[in-house]
Measured scan of single mutants.
Amino acid sequence: LQAFIKTLTGKTFTVEMEPSDTIENLKAKIQDKEGIPPDQQRLIFAGKQLEDGRTLSDYNIQKESTLHLVL
């Protein structure tokens, strides 16, 4: 599935991932794409901060969901 990552500066980019991917995997993909170390990334979806060990499906993240990236 493709999801949108929106930063506080208003920049939006897309990442490809599977519902079974962990938040940790997602942070690694963001690092590959944007060069931001995972330990500096905080991802917010539906008002909740996402925990590394959980999966996208745990948070009911669907295709074309928008996640907010806070540094």
Rank of each mutant, 00 (worst) to 15 (best):
L1A: 06
Q2P: 07
A3D: 02
F4H: 13
F4C: 10
F4Y: 12
I5V: 08
I5E: 02
I5W: 03
I5Q: 01
T7Y: 14
T7F: 11
T7N: 05
L8N: 15
T9K: 10
G10A: 02
K11P: 04
K11S: 06
K11Q: 08
K11Y: 15
T12N: 06
T12W: 09
F13S: 00
T14S: 10
T14P: 06
V15Y: 03
V15C: 03
E16C: 10
M17R: 00
M17G: 03
M17C: 12
S20V: 04
S20C: 08
D21T: 05
D21M: 10
T22P: 03
E24T: 07
E24H: 11
E24K: 11
N25Y: 12
L26Y: 00
L26W: 01
K27R: 05
K27W: 02
K27N: 00
A28R: 15
A28D: 06
A28Y: 13
A28F: 12
K29G: 02
K29Q: 08
K29M: 08
I30L: 04
I30G: 01
D32F: 11
D32G: 08
E34L: 15
E34T: 15
E34S: 14
G35Y: 02
I36D: 02
I36C: 03
I36K: 02
P37M: 06
P38C: 08
P38K: 15
P38V: 15
D39S: 12
Q41T: 03
R42A: 07
R42K: 12
L43C: 01
L43I: 12
I44C: 12
F45G: 02
F45C: 03
A46H: 14
A46R: 13
G47N: 06
Q49E: 15
L50T: 03
L50N: 01
L50A: 02
L50F: 02
E51M: 06
E51S: 06
E51W: 04
E51K: 07
D52V: 05
D52H: 05
G53L: 07
G53W: 14
R54N: 10
T55S: 09
L56S: 01
L56Q: 00
D58A: 05
Y59K: 01
Y59W: 02
Y59T: 02
N60P: 04
N60A: 08
N60V: 07
I61K: 05
I61D: 04
I61Y: 06
Q62A: 11
Q62C: 05
K63E: 12
K63Y: 10
E64N: 15
E64I: 07
E64R: 07
T66E: 09
T66V: 15
T66R: 06
T66K: 07
L67W: 04
L67F: 07
L67A: 02
H68K: 05
L69K: 00
L69Q: 01
L69D: 00
L69C: 01
L69Y: 01
L69R: 00
V70E: 10
V70I: 13
V70M: 12
V70P: 00
V70R: 08
L71S: 08
L71R: 06
L71Q: 08
